[in-house]
């Protein structure tokens, strides 16, 4: 589903991504972890073109993304994204947040878009909040709306960029539950997250990144029980202490 070949990216002289290679199959759930500043957030954003790349190529489905490719409409339809800070549109109601891209980007009819939005919002447990504005919801609720908003465009891949790290601890699980059920339904998912319980329980594979490199890729159980690289061992030792 996603092929990443020799991808590098620079900020000025600083190399944020160093020759990254990997491949993600349809229906697979991949968790990307690593210390902060390791480039994992930049890496995931290259997969829908929010971050440009300086060399290499990324193929998502039938779409080939390379340096200089600018018409990203097809890619954006294929890939949904959930952000760390939700990024709901504060001036729109919950329902409109989920319908606006359907009607304006995909040109779906209003009735069809609303029906889709209602069923998705029911799926994430927010049917009672359709007419509220984002600022009236808790963080966990907002993030669930954001997931529904991305799903409304029928993406084939979902990207999650630290979806729970801006949440109060008691709200983390309501979001992880939605993600888990999504994974069980066979969605292809790439998640940057520090939730090791989710990684171990749901992910098929874990990518460990450090200093812009993919240092290690392994299936989840193997990664946690027998990390190969020293850097992964040091990272796991640090986060498991907490």
């Amino acid at each position: 589903m996603i092929e990443i070949r020799n991808v590098s990216k620079f900020y000025g002289a600083f190399q944020v991504l160093k020759n990254c290679n990997s491949s993600i199959a349809r229906g697979e759930v991949v968790v990307i972890c690593g210390p902060s500043g390791s480039g994992k957030s930049t890496f995931i954003k290259t997969m829908n073109g929010l971050e440009t790349i300086d060399s290499g190529e990324i193929v998502v489905g039938n779409f080939r993304l390379a340096p200089g490719v600018t018409n990203l409409a097809t890619l954006r339809r294929t890939v949904g994204m959930v952000f760390q800070n939700f990024e709901l549109f504060p001036h729109l109601t919950v329902l409109s947040n989920v319908t606006i891209a359907q009607t304006k980007v995909l040109r779906r009819g209003k009735a069809e878009a609303e029906e889709k939005a209602r069923s998705l919002l029911a799926r994430v447990g927010l049917s009672a909040h359709l007419t509220k504005h984002p600022a009236q919801l808790s963080g966990g609720q907002q993030q669930r709306v954001a997931i529904a908003r991305a799903l409304a465009l029928d993406p084939e891949v979902m990207l999650f960029d630290e979806p729970t790290s801006a949440l109060d601890p008691e709200m983390v699980n309501e979001v992880l539950d939605v993600m888990t059920s999504l994974a069980k339904q066979g969605m292809t998912m790439v998640c940057v997250t520090h939730e090791m319980g989710f990684a171990r329980g749901v992910a098929n594979r874990v990518f460990f990144m450090d200093s812009g490199e993919i240092v290690e890729t392994a299936n989840a159980a193997a990664f946690f029980d027998h990390p190969k690289s020293e850097r992964a061992k040091a990272f796991l030792a640090k986060i498991l202490k907490h």
Partner: peptide, 23 residues
């Protein structure tokens, strides 16, 4: 506005005109 708003609009497939007008 937070930078993420433009990113979210981009990720949803809005073109520049739609992003400015609607979001």
């Amino acid at each position: 506005l937070p930078k993420g708003q433009a990113q979210a609009a981009n990720a949803l497939g809005f073109d520049a005109s739609g992003m400015y007008r609607l979001i």
